[in-house]
Design a protein around this nucleic acid. Sequence first.
RNA 1: GCCGGGGUGGCGAAAUGGUAUACGCAGGGGACUUAAAAUCCCCCGGGAGUAAUCCCAUGCGGGUUCGAUUCCCGCCCCCGGCACCA
Length: 818
Amino acid sequence: MANQEQDGYQPSTIEEKWQRRWEERGTNAFTTDELRSADQPFYNLMMFPYPSAEGLHVGNIYAFTGADVYGRYQRLRGRTVFEPIGFDAFGIHSENFALKVGTHPMDLIPSNVANFTRQLRRIGGMFDWTHTVDTTDPAYYEWTQWIFLQLYEAGLAERKEAPVNWCPSCMTVLANEQVGAGACERCGTPVEQRRIAQWFFKITEYAERLLDNLEELDWSETTRKAQANWIGRSEGAQLHFPVLDEQGANTDDTVEVYTTRPDTIFGATYMVLAPEHPLVDAVTRAGQAGAVDAYRVQARKKDLVARQKDDRTKTGVFTGGYCRNPATGRAVPVWVADYVLMDYGTGAIMAVPGHDERDFEFARTFDLPIVRVVAGPDENADTPLEEAYVGPGRLVNSGELDGTDVSESVSVATEWAAKQGWAEARVQYRLHDWCISRQRYWGPPIPIVHCPSCGAVPVPEDELPVVLPRVEDFKPDDTGVSPMARVESWYETSCPACGGDARRETDVSDTFLDSSWYFLRYPSTDFDDRPFDPEITKQWLPVDTYIGGNEHAVLHLMYARFITMVLKDLGHIDFEEPFTQFRAHGLIIAEGAKMSKSKGNVIVPDPIIEEYGADTFRTYLMFLGPFEEGGDYRAEGIQGPHGFLHRMWDTAVSADPSAPPDPEVERKVHQTIKQVSEQIPELGYNTAIAALMECLNSVRAGGRTAARAEVEPLVVMVAPFAPHMAEELWEQLGHEESIFDGAHWPSYDDAKLAEDTVTVAVQVNGKLRGSIDVPKDAPEPDVVAAARGDENVARHLEGAAERRVIYVKERLINFVVE
RNA sequence: GCCGGGGUGGCGAAAUGGUAUACGCAGGGGACUUAAAAUCCCCCGGGAGUAAUCCCAUGCGGGUUCGAUUCCCGCCCCCGGCACCA
């Protein structure tokens, strides 16, 4: 009698065994030659983690498991799957944590990476550990710097003094994208405005392409929408308003305004300049100069929080000056107000209080004239305006434009105005250039040398990397420059152009630059003389499937797309979209609430894996809910997948190797193959697992002994979720090779799917009154007759006048009666 | 305010025009066992009824349809993102 203990499912032993084997045999690793010669390459990418001191959290594991399931599935389908992983270890996260615990990031990161690596191995991902990437490794960031130089030489990187978002707590400049509601996204401190010389990448030059390409990408709708909103294309016109002198005559100055409603020009009764607008002084009259100055000072002090807070009470000041409305010929007063933003459009607007809510509110506050120029269907030119009217209608009080329907009035008005020489059609984007410099320590130094005679000079390629030196005092300060600016021995250098004394750029680059190209590096990590090998890149890129969090829907994904486009334009690669398919996973909550330390519902993965094994943990995570929506982790719920894998094990090891499959069971197996094969590619992991459970229940029904032929397809299908157990069972079923190399994803036979008899629901007036079993392919009259024969159905039909009989083949009959 | 995603048993959830509640958790009952674990079987949306059976139920209100969780119109609520972008 076999010892139960020995034969039972022992996750920890099995998992250790197979993890060791995968590595010893290099099952998941590729040599450069193998990468070159792969015949059905599948690049399965997941967003690489920032290696925090806390270790992998459940969100990471959820994402990686979901991606790994997909990769393993593709491999069982016969693809050569490259599934790399790496570490996004530069950046403010790491640096702030290092400051907090008083350990140098150069010491901290390696131990964090080691811990992450241990955990990643433990969850049984199919990672190619011979192709990892660490963004803080000079061998990696050498090429991050190279990319900077590529952009610089292409004229896509420029240094300019710009008003930037400054976080007084992190003491660094933040990209617009890192500011949420006027506060630092990291620490929540209100952001201030400062003017500092910064490096920018001209991503705005790519706005149109970034937007247009979205249409063709196989990305989830949410992500594409988020990107489209961020790019924020709008169509309108730029209008020229001549500035008037004291006598009311035109001067040489014009105020340029951008508007999406040039058709409302006749209702433009005043204008507003942003406080920072360069023409404010020119427009302001002597009598108002004091008031205008006072307002500007106040506006500057008001940080972005106050300017963007919910409290949007309009403030402003009259400059005393006027412009001419080019349509009406009338003088309109020019105001300064902070509801107009300098960094959008032209920083100046024509105010149309009748048809813009903000302008309406401002006009009410300061008692400025409000003119109706659009009349709705039930209104006329004189209908009083109680609020800004933005609905459909026709133009009124608009001279030659009167009567034009608003559906076409924008283009009509633009054309009309352009003909008179005071307007041009203009497309405007909300996207800003990408500020990539950071006045911090923990990042790749920007490879530029500032020379008193030559200006900014790029570091020659053969001198890369510009290595970030170990500096013990890396604390940022309030000076607006990087801590590296305190390290004379490092920044003092000679000019690569003239050889004279020069100074290195002391800023480092944004972490998003590190992550904007890492997927290009993975397959080429064996090369130290090039960022990515052309041949291998051609073979493996673009990425087939990218899985990650939607929090990176705009920033990371946009920057990666931008950098890829630039590299294409510069001839380094031959594709311009890096990720053919992108899927965002959902979020895991715990016990019905967001995980947080204070709620005490944070899921710590290690002990769970310890108790149940990685396979059970993986399967449970995938079973919680639809992968793209996330799910609610409940500790006791793991019992389901736990029991399932145990039963799977018992069934497989006790299967009869020679018994023929039972036809009923075989049908169920084929139905399951069909379902699972359809659901996995759609990331419907939860329903795929449910189908496997249901199938296993059939295989075991009544405590019968399964036939091996029934079980083998199940073992293969469960392999993406529980890879260790599947390997072990596969071996015990007598196979030599790894299941991921030797097995083929099972296929189903349509002939075996069909049932001999089908159950047909019988309704009377749409209400279920019975169900009948009829032979498959039974002719309709027979089925209808059988339905009438049902006792309960007959009762409901009795004495009623039949109007129609609806028959849906092999599904349902509906008697429509009166 | 705008853009997404949601709202179905005690709970996680399934079903994309055709038998609502698959699969699983929790709960109840039973079998095996000295006991426990594991395993197996049965019950499990609400109401009425001894039962057959009937009525009600997928956030709310309408509509289309023989038939609606699913499609259309109008609301309410929750989650995520954006937000004075002219």
